[in-house]
């Protein structure tokens, strides 16, 4: 129920909540008009012309469940809160069926299983009426108009500044630029060709090379990538092979003799 569209026009006085239909072909159900399970319950009690202080629990429970089933048949997701109320109603209904404790003779000691629900309904109805009052107030307020905003320093972003103001600001910016410490960062770069040359030299001098050790020598991510491409390139073009003694172990780059 809470997932209903938050804004829709609802006339508190003209429209009354109602369940219409049941025939799935010509179906017209005003679901959104119930703000919650208590709202639905109040509606059913009134529809049945029942006394709120003496709710015919069996009949009301039946009507309530009928409504829930109707909602389900219409593929309307029944909010958990509606199901909680259904469970509460069934619980009260079953308690009503139990024979009274014969040891309790005093009428006042007998606790009506419906009492808690009645209290909740009465409390809820007060707020429902208050909501109607708020609705009325807001409708009246919507018929009242105040004047539009007047331009002031707060609402107007334009600033009154003279040429001299601009000049002062400009001078400050220039002064700040002079003070700025310039720091140049040189990026050491090694080309793929250089990397390939170095790798070849190592391989042909030593005969074999641990790739783990070779990659370890690199200083930056960039160098690492270059080194990796160089290894791929040398495997492709030169007579070298890759040896790995165990899974995830070190790889040896070896010259094929």
């Amino acid at each position: 129920m809470e997932q209903e569209i938050e804004q829709y026009n609802f006339d508190f006085h003209k429209e009354t909540a109602q369940i219409v239909g049941g025939n799935s072909d010509t179906l017209n159900i005003k679901i959104g008009d119930f703000a919650g399970p208590l709202d639905l319950l109040l509606f059913l009690i009134r529809q049945e012309q029942a006394n709120i202080f003496d709710i015919p629990i069996a009949r009301i429970t039946e009507k309530y469940l009928e409504y829930i089933r109707l909602m389900k048949r219409l593929d309307i997701s029944v909010a958990a809160d509606f199901l909680v109320m259904a469970a509460t109603l069934i619980e009260i209904k079953s308690k009503m069926l139990l024979p009274r404790d014969p040891s309790i003779t005093d009428e006042e000691e007998f606790e009506d299983p419906r009492q808690e629900l009645v209290d909740r309904l009465l409390e809820y109805e007060k707020f429902k009426t208050a909501a109607g009052m708020l609705h009325e107030r807001s409708t009246i307020e919507q018929a009242i108009f105040t004047r539009g905003p007047i331009e002031s320093d707060e609402t107007n972003a334009e600033v009154d500044a003279s040429v001299f103001d601009l000049l002062t600001v400009f001078q400050k910016i220039v002064a700040r630029h002079v003070d700025e410490i310039k720091m140049e960062i040189h990026r050491e770069e090694i080309s793929l060709a250089d990397m390939l040359k170095a790798l070849k030299k190592r391989i042909f001098e030593t005969g074999e090379l641990s790739l783990l050790a070779f990659f370890e020598e690199m200083h930056s991510k960039r160098e690492l990538v270059t080194a990796f491409i160089a290894v791929l390139e040398i495997v492709r073009t030169e007579s070298v092979k890759l040896l790995q003694s165990k899974t995830f172990g070190d790889i040896i780059l070896k010259k094929v003799s």
Binding site: Q7, Y8, F10, F127, A130, L134
Partner: peptide, 23 residues
């Protein structure tokens, strides 16, 4: 004159919630 319509009203659920919060 303003060419405006009444703005969207609060839903029944929101009004009820507001009433509970107000009181």
């Amino acid at each position: 004159f303003l060419k405006t319509r009444p703005s969207a009203k609060l839903s029944l659920a929101s009004l009820e919630t507001l009433a509970v919060i107000a009181y």
